[in-house]
Design a protein around this nucleic acid. Structure first.
Lengths: 198, 198, 198, 198
DNA sequence: GATGAATGAGCTTTCATTCAT
DNA sequence: GATGAATGAAAGCTCATTCAT
């Protein structure tokens, strides 16, 4: 007859919230934001529709939260622990992390493609844009300055960064469309060949 | 009051059909497939809702038709008239055509991004996939065979083609997201620099 | 095979719109704004739910329209045609019209009670308030100036008007609650007795 | 750690119950019955949703209880202690009490307006009707018999009572709508002028 | 007694599609 | 061919109520 402790409640909330986000990511990835219904998500999570609104004010906010959860995939991608390594090695690690993440977290990357390219929804993902501009962009820039700082102006290096980013978006795009049959690793090696003699 | 000839008739139908497709492309591009309503499209085209169903069985079929119409942008891109030019020049022309098309036909490319990356809809776009596999892929392949035929196996060239395609998709992706501020031409030059000394 | 003419369409719209407003008034009156569902209204009107949204953007707007429609009951109440009659006669006519309207248009008056006294909804009924202040208030004022202009200041007459309005509102209030058993006419006579010897 | 006595227990229950009723009255008054949620009320009272159901079977029953609690405002209104005073003085005291109560207990009167005029809910308020008929009506009747018993039939006096009650409802109605700016006291004086020379 | 997570019925609203004219 | 009124399924969301602890 003792009531649940606040800790117990927090734990329950945490568990449900994570479950919802996880299943929402799958369903959003599979059907796209608009065709993914709250009903589908609740069924995928084995809970009632109403419960979702206990944790997220709206479908929109749920999407935001799913995306924020996805930030960690970007974080993992950028984890380049060893400080005493060359820029070339850093870029290789980054690429390896990226392709690994594509394989491991396909639902998230599907969602990323679908949402980012969506004309209206993407406006709502301000948090994501800020994150990209403040964290991911500068990291790439620092690596490319190390690589090309001697031979190029900063302006030119900016363009290098954008081309590299385009490549990342491009293989994500194609991998999402083609799935397992896409030769991710071979393409990655080919790309490195464009930057470094091997 | 001359009675319309069958030819006249067919011509009028064709004109109406094209008008609908054109306006539908704009509306789909602006709002995305799901948020674009038949009502919006009919208003943009200045006709009644019902008339659209006179030309297309369903919203889905209209989308298909809009997409098929968009093939012409691919066709234009691949128009490399002079036969007596080098593979390098062909690739340059292709890239020029590509970036020009991005600028000229932004609505189509928005739609392309949005739809292709859409997990379920894309299944319906079989016509597009067939087209890609039978027309665009082979063209790229022929150019790259000319470029690298001596030094690489066909397998490797396939990978080169896919890498190049990834760049194109990535550039389109980023251009659609960032719009006018994206330095399309500078990036194009950088990309060519990865293939040819300049 | 001739398409419907614009006039025909306008007529159809007019008919449906009026039907919806009429039935909405009944249903709102019977159940109150919140318990009255769009579903109930559509069933009362023998049409589909969706059709209501073809004519009114929202439930809110439907309520507004129902109310605007109800203005005519106020207009009828204030119809005092003969110009060459005394203020006393005018007041009598006004009261007669008022009680008659209560009897004839009970649904509207129920709705009026329910909505006006509702803390939040009433804010939306700005049109009604403006109407009252610009039309009904001044009319009462002119009658009471004629009645008491000699003996009272304008300030005092204002109070007389508000007292009279309170009687009207109270009578409507009680009539709506008690229904047919409420002795409307006897009370009307009693009220007149407070103003004129009889 | 003295064990709570049953009396202590009952007292605590009483206190909680009163707190809920008090806060519920505020919330109902502010948002109206339907828009006032159990959640709002529980937050206003600083307790959990579930606890409310420990004291009241349903939202409906809570409303009933809030209303019954409001009877005390009627009781206070009718408190005319001195027995040796004239009917005129009694009526004046009654009116003073009423206007004072309007000012002091605005939330209750808002709720009263909102609920009583609500077509379906009011059916549930049987307790209130019984109360009115057995307590408030007879009191007014006794005063008016004293006032007009010589000159009128009982039937007529009934009508006087109803007109007076309509006036009370009317100023409550208007006061609730207009708020502080409503000249309650001036109107009260005007009314008394209709009954007694002054 | 007390908590708040969880449920599910029911709400308003949207929109592809049909069809009488 | 052409119109737009009308339909109805399905969406997002709210909230009174229950119940395990």
């Amino acid at each position: 007859m003792t009531p649940r402790t606040p800790e117990k409640f927090a734990e329950m909330r945490e568990k449900s919230r994570n479950l919802i986000i996880e299943k929402a990511m799958d369903v959003f990835a599979k059907h796209g934001y608009y065709k993914a219904s709250i009903n589908m998500i609740s069924k995928a999570a084995g809970i009632s529709k109403g419960l979702i609104y206990n944790y997220f004010k709206s479908k929109d906010e749920l999407l935001q939260s799913v995306f924020v959860e996805g930030f960690k995939y970007f974080d993992e991608m950028m984890k380049i622990d060893q400080t005493e390594i060359s820029a070339q090695e850093k870029l290789e690690i980054l690429l390896n992390n990226f392709t690994q993440s594509l394989k491991d977290n396909l639902p998230f990357w599907k969602l990323y493609q679908n949402i980012i390219s969506h004309p209206i929804i993407s406006e709502k993902l301000t948090k994501f844009k800020e994150y990209y501009e403040s964290v991911f962009g500068p990291l790439l820039m620092s690596i490319f300055i190390e690589l090309f700082g001697n031979e190029m102006t900063e302006m030119e290096i900016q363009i290098e960064v954008m081309l590299f980013a385009a490549f990342l978006d491009g293989i994500a795009f194609d991998y999402v469309i083609m799935g397992e049959e896409y030769p991710l690793d071979a393409i990655k090696q080919k790309l490195l060949g464009k930057y470094f003699d091997r």
